[in-house]
Design a protein around this nucleic acid. Structure first.
Length: 465
DNA sequence: AGGCGGTACTG
DNA sequence: CAGTACC
DNA sequence: GCCT
């Protein structure tokens, strides 16, 4: 099943191999901290009719999350009568968090392999994988269509490249929404199953395409002339190029960069010279970003992230053995290299209060954390370094265990993946340091997918851009 | 005409 | 408060 | 920028 608004429905319902449910269902379930009966929230449009799940045979079935009894549709692709399984388990258990999650996973997803710790296995095995592809839907709700590789359709790639130049220029001007418009149009082109060689290839899509008259005109220009004047103007604008370069320094954004360019600073070297003369040109974080500019341009090899994980866990366990860590982000998604390292530090909020500052303190004493960028009560952003290695960016998040699955989902990303299907919304509502009400209780990420009734997507499949 | 993500930290 | 960053 |  898919949580959808009306626009979503008209766009994607025909692609869904699972039932569709209105967003109102999610909103009210979240608000009231219990799952509303889906039968009260059905779309009645003909196109969605075939997607709707048949009403439960037992009219007494309740969707109360406190007793956590939900239906699991774990073989959505099966053409035969839908196989269903009712899962019913109590929320009390003496086992550890990872034991719990493993056994739950095995119960819910018999075909799922549970990985050993990433540091002890080869990269390709380091993420949870589904052993039998036929045991889950081919097309996930969060992955509406596969993205074509650039070589598939040269013209599409060209269009995306040139529109991307314009989009970046708007991003630097902080024209947030025009940027968004271009991003969506580019995503659309990239997802097309055919090459755009005439403008009719775009027009024939019909419906909501994210491509309006303006972008359509630009696409026409690219198709007919092979060029886009506006993009060339941007690329030839040295001021633009300089702003972009300066924005690569952590802590410098478009506004600061434009200010620097206005002062005649157009390169990293010039910026360093300028800071030597005027110490207050940059704030503390920007100076740190500049100091490690070259190192931070490099991605961190997966093996080194695993080393860091080992080290941080050792520190954490010494501070408080009831606390554990989880490396999320692109590492958890199985990438061979990571732009930074995201680490969730999770345990009881009481213990975290004392332990979290202590953990970063010890890492600093060891010389592993070399610079602090942000340290709040619930998050730490900084720079780490191991002997003989480059500096790298590290983020630590203190997560109370009842919010852990939401935080894990959030920080595993990708950002684009999270932006689909209400994932962002449900995580936001339930993972927040300032949150007062208790979150909807879930034990692991899979239960969040259940909550949304979206087929589970393993981390390795969430790297959509 | 108005929406397009929400939150947390720095200075 | 604006700016920047996080996914 | 696009969409409702």
């Amino acid at each position: 099943m898919v949580v959808a608004d009306t626009a979503m429905l008209s766009k994607y319902a025909h692609l869904c191999e699972v039932p569709v449910r209105p967003a109102r269902w999610l909103t009210e379930s979240v608000r009231d901290h219990r799952l509303k009966s889906p039968d009260l929230y059905r779309f009645c449009t003909p196109s969605a009719e075939t997607c709707l799940r048949a009403p439960p045979s037992s009219s007494k079935r309740r969707y109360n999350y406190s007793e956590f009894r939900v239906e699991v549709n774990y073989d959505l692709k099966s053409q035969s009568a839908k196989r269903r399984k009712v899962v019913d388990y109590s929320l009390s258990s003496g086992s550890t968090a990872s034991d719990q999650s493993d056994s739950i996973v095995k119960n819910l997803f018999p075909v799922l392999k549970i990985s050993r710790p990433p540091s002890t296995v080869r990269h390709s095995e380091a993420v949870e994988t589904v052993s039998s592809p036929s045991a889950r839907p081919r097309r996930w709700a969060c992955e509406i269509r596969p993205t074509m590789s650039d070589t598939d359709f040269p013209m599409n790639a060209k269009i995306c490249e040139l529109l991307g130049v314009v989009q970046e220029a708007y991003a630097l001007k902080k024209d947030h929404f025009r940027t968004l418009g271009y991003q969506r149009a580019i995503a659309k082109i990239r997802s097309l199953p055919h090459e755009v060689l005439t403008i009719d290839d775009v027009r024939s899509l019909g419906g909501e395409t994210s491509i309006g008259s303006r972008i359509e005109r630009k696409i026409t220009e690219i198709i007919t002339t092979g060029r886009l004047l506006q993009a060339e103007t941007v690329l030839n604008n040295s001021e633009n190029v300089a702003v972009k370069t300066l924005c690569d320094v952590w802590g410098i954004g478009p506004v600061k960069a434009m200010g620097l360019v206005a002062e005649g600073i157009t390169s990293i070297e010039q910026l360093r010279a300028a800071v030597r003369k005027n110490d207050s040109l940059l704030d503390l974080n920007q100076k740190i970003g500049l100091k490690h500019y070259e190192d931070l341009l490099h991605r961190i090899p997966r093996e080194q992230v695993a080393e860091l994980e080992y080290y941080v866990r050792r520190i954490v366990k010494r501070v408080d053995s009831s606390i554990d860590i989880k490396v999320a982000g692109s590492y958890l998604r199985g990438k061979k290299s990571c732009g930074d390292v995201d680490i969730l530090v999770y345990g009881s909020s009481q213990k975290l209060k004392k332990a979290f500052p202590e953990i970063t303190k010890r890492m600093k004493k060891d010389g592993v954390l070399t610079d602090d960028l942000v340290h709040g009560a619930g998050k730490y952003f900084g720079i780490f370094k191991f002997p003989g290695r480059r500096h790298g960016r590290i983020d630590l998040f203190a997560v109370p265990h009842e919010q852990y699955p939401y935080a894990l989902l959030t920080y595993t990303g990708s950002a684009v993946f999270n932006s689909h299907q209400g994932l962002q919304k449900v995580c936001r509502t339930n993972y927040s340091r300032t949150r007062v009400e208790p979150p909807i209780r879930v034990r692991d990420e899979k239960e969040i997918f259940l909550l949304l009734d979206i087929p589970y997507v393993p981390p390795s499949a969430r790297s959509i851009s």
